[in-house]
Design a protein around this nucleic acid. Sequence first.
DNA 1: TGTACATCAGTGAACGCGCGTTCACTGATGTAC
DNA 2: TGTACATCAGTGAACGCGCGTTCACTGATGTAC
Lengths: 218, 218
Amino acid sequence: MGEATTTPRERYRQQVRAEIKERAWEQIAAAGASAVSLNAIAKHMGLSGAALYRYFTNRDELVTELVRDAYQSLAGTFRAVAARGEGNLSGLAHALREWALADPQRYFLVYGTPVPGYRRPADVTVIASEIMGIVLEACTPQPGDGRATPFEATVEARPKEEAGQPLAAPDALHTAVFFWSRLHGVLSMELGGHFTGMGFDPALLFQTELELLLTRGP
Amino acid sequence: MGEATTTPRERYRQQVRAEIKERAWEQIAAAGASAVSLNAIAKHMGLSGAALYRYFTNRDELVTELVRDAYQSLAGTFRAVAARGEGNLSGLAHALREWALADPQRYFLVYGTPVPGYRRPADVTVIASEIMGIVLEACTPQPGDGRATPFEATVEARPKEEAGQPLAAPDALHTAVFFWSRLHGVLSMELGGHFTGMGFDPALLFQTELELLLTRGP
DNA sequence: TGTACATCAGTGAACGCGCGTTCACTGATGTAC
DNA sequence: TGTACATCAGTGAACGCGCGTTCACTGATGTAC
């Protein structure tokens, strides 16, 4: 254990911080991100509202911390999947879906409606590009790999251009972006309830979209 | 003009209602949907807060009305496109993108992060399915049309199944759903700023995704 | 081990604020005769 | 056309509420000698 130097006080501090964030997540799950309230969290914890200012300088810092944690959680999930040797597009896709379904509001905090005027802190942007990096890696043909692309179908089998307008080369970045946007499309429609009453199984839709991506590329 | 029976008072009423909604949209554009405030709107219009209760029974009714208007606006846009004879997938896609870019927050009010616990009123759901109906129509081969599907490439040229797992038949509903989810994916990533700093032209991405859909189907 | 001091978690009162909403009212606009 | 009445837009004061945040404080926990 590297944190042997951690004092009991510091440990307690981190526990309370963690509980504050947990309560904040409960509020978000119950009424959306704008419902996060320091006073309400304090009351729920049996503390006075002022006590929370020992742990966060203000409400904004708490929310920013939640956003950061959300990004970090996804990055960690992806890293774990990759470490398990399942860091291909299929593995990442299923990890993404599981992660999103586990806490939809956390997912939306990252990829949902942007709050006008809100700027992601620089370090969060770094985590975001780390996430994209892992996807990108899955889209990059590995040396020693049998195939030249992450797809089962070969690139050559696909039409090179359409109606005289050349399509962008299906390079890794291109693939990663469409991997992301398509899965986000299906996922956010599912979580937003836009499929309900249409007689579709969202899991199957996700799977279908993923398979189309895997077999044909973007 | 069928509204010849409208009294001046009623006309005035509608004007004020319209201005209230306009101010509400400004608030949404500035700080998100949760920032809609009757008092702030009233102050901005030079009225007392209580005056607005002549026009909306409460805050909730105003917000619901905005949601309804957003759906109706998109439905109207789609209807107009169809009436212009451009109701194919390409025409609808570009209309969707224009509509979304014209007012991103309006777009997100419809397809953005769902507010936990919020139920769309029944009549809004009706409009939503009307919108889907127009898309569905564009996905349905028209009698007298030269082609059997809305795609340039024929269905037969595509592999019927992959790895022994049969793909769902690319029928109209299937096509419509993927049309919607893919374009929503690209659009919401663009509007959410998740493409910034990646060196992509969002318009081109949208166009590319659309063309892939048109030439290869879902 | 005991004492003196420093650190720090948490309190409770207070601040100003903006919110949604109600209510009795004034005054202007429209309607009926 | 003029008068009597009804309708209705808007006022302003008031309500209770919860919010974020500050501040001087108490009391418990940790540290130094």
